[in-house]
Design a protein around this nucleic acid. Sequence first.
DNA 1: CGCGGGTTTGATGATGCTCAAGCCCGGTGG
DNA 2: CCACCGGGCTTGAGCATCATCAAACCCGCG
Lengths: 212, 212
Amino acid sequence: MEFYGISSKLYIILYQRTAMFEQLFASVSSKISLTQEDFERAKPYFMAKKLRKKQYLLQEGDVGKHVAFVEKGALRSYTIDDKGNEHIVQFALEGWWIGDNYSLYTGEPSTYNIEALEDSELLLISAVSIEQMLESIPKLEKYFRILLQNSMVALQRRLVASLSLTSEEKYKRMIKIYPDIIQRVPQHMIASYLGMTPETLSRIRKQITIGQ
Amino acid sequence: MEFYGISSKLYIILYQRTAMFEQLFASVSSKISLTQEDFERAKPYFMAKKLRKKQYLLQEGDVGKHVAFVEKGALRSYTIDDKGNEHIVQFALEGWWIGDNYSLYTGEPSTYNIEALEDSELLLISAVSIEQMLESIPKLEKYFRILLQNSMVALQRRLVASLSLTSEEKYKRMIKIYPDIIQRVPQHMIASYLGMTPETLSRIRKQITIGQ
DNA sequence: CGCGGGTTTGATGATGCTCAAGCCCGGTGG
DNA sequence: CCACCGGGCTTGAGCATCATCAAACCCGCG
C-alpha cells in the first residue's frame, strides 16, 4: 500500500512526525511565513515530552531548563504568595507556549509551578537550542518577538482589567476572551486566575444564568 | 586650551554628545558589555527630543512611531477605561524606556497616552532604526531581550500583587521597589498606579506614619 | 456504598469606594 | 503685599462589594 509513492510504513513515520508539530506549525504560520524546508530544519531543536494530568513541568525552586509549546492538553503556571494562596499566572492550551523565560535565561530558580491539568503533549526547547535555532533560521526571531509583544499586551490589559473591573465584569471578560479555557478548567482555578474566591465566582455564575 | 590634545571647542561638542547619551550608555553597560566604538555607532539611530511638563509623547488613537529612552525627567503612560477612569500602566524615570511597542510594530493606533510629568529629555528611536541598529550591532539584541524579559517579570509580579495584596501592602511594596517614583510623582497618580482611590491612599499613609 | 474534592448556599464582617466637605499651599492678579 | 482661586490632599459618614467561615450538596470514583 502506498501514498504518493511512499511506502505505508515510511508514510506513517512521516505522518507522525508532522502530526507531532501540527500546532507549532500552525502557530508559526499564523505569524510569519516560513517555508516547509525551514520548518523541517527547526524540528530537531525540539524534544517531545508527554505529561500526565497533575504532573509538573517545573516546580518552584527548580531552574527552568526549557520552555514548552503545547501540542495537546492543558497546563497552568502559578505562584504561591506569602499568605499561602495560589495565584494562577497563565493557562496554556494547544498552541500556547508556557515556561519561565526569566529562570531559563538567568539560571535563577523559578518562582512558578507549572502543572498539567490534562494529559498533555509538549515540545520542549532549551535556551541553547533556541539560540542555535534562531541563528540558523533568523526569520524565527520575528515569530518570537511577536509572541513576546502579544503577551506583554495581554498582560497589561489583564492588569488594567484587574484594577478597574468588578468581579462580574472580570468573569464576563474571561468568557469573551478565553471561552475554551472556561470549558476545560475547574472553576476554582478560573477564580484564582481572576483573583477572586471560588465562592464569589459561584455566586456570579448563578447571578448571570438567572439574569438570562 | 586643550584636553588630551583635543581643542576646547571640539571637546565641548563631544562632551555634549556623550552627556546626552549618559543614561543610555549606563543602561546598556549594566546589561551587556559593549565597546565604546559600538556605542558610537549606535548613537546616530537616535533622535533627541525635549518635552515640557504636561506635554504628550503619544495620545490614544495615534500610532506610536517611536519608543523613547528617558535621559532626564519623568513620564507616565496611562489608559482610560470604559468608566472613564485613568489607569497608569507605567512610570518612566531616567534610565527607563517608555512607548507602545505594540502600536509601533503593528501600526495600529495606540490605546495609551504618554505624558511628561516633568520637563524631560528623551532619546527616540523608530521601529526601522531599531531594525537597522540591531542589524549593525547584533549584540544589542541581547540588551533588548533582557529588557523585555525584565518587564515581563515585573508585570507578572505586579499582577500577582494586585490580586493578592491589600491596599496597604501594595503601597508598602511600591515604597520598597520604587522609592524614587514615590518621591517625584503626585500622590493621586501613585493611587492610580496601584489601583486604589486617592482617598484610600491618603488614609493608608496616615495609618503608616502614625504606626511609626 | 461511601469517601472526598469541588461547588453551592448562607450569614457575617472587613476592606475600600463614593460622595461631600474642608484644608493646605502655591500661583495669580489686583 | 495681600486676597483669592484652584488643585491636590485630607477627613468623615454611609454603603457596596467581596472575603471569610461554615455547612450542605453533588457527583465521580474506588
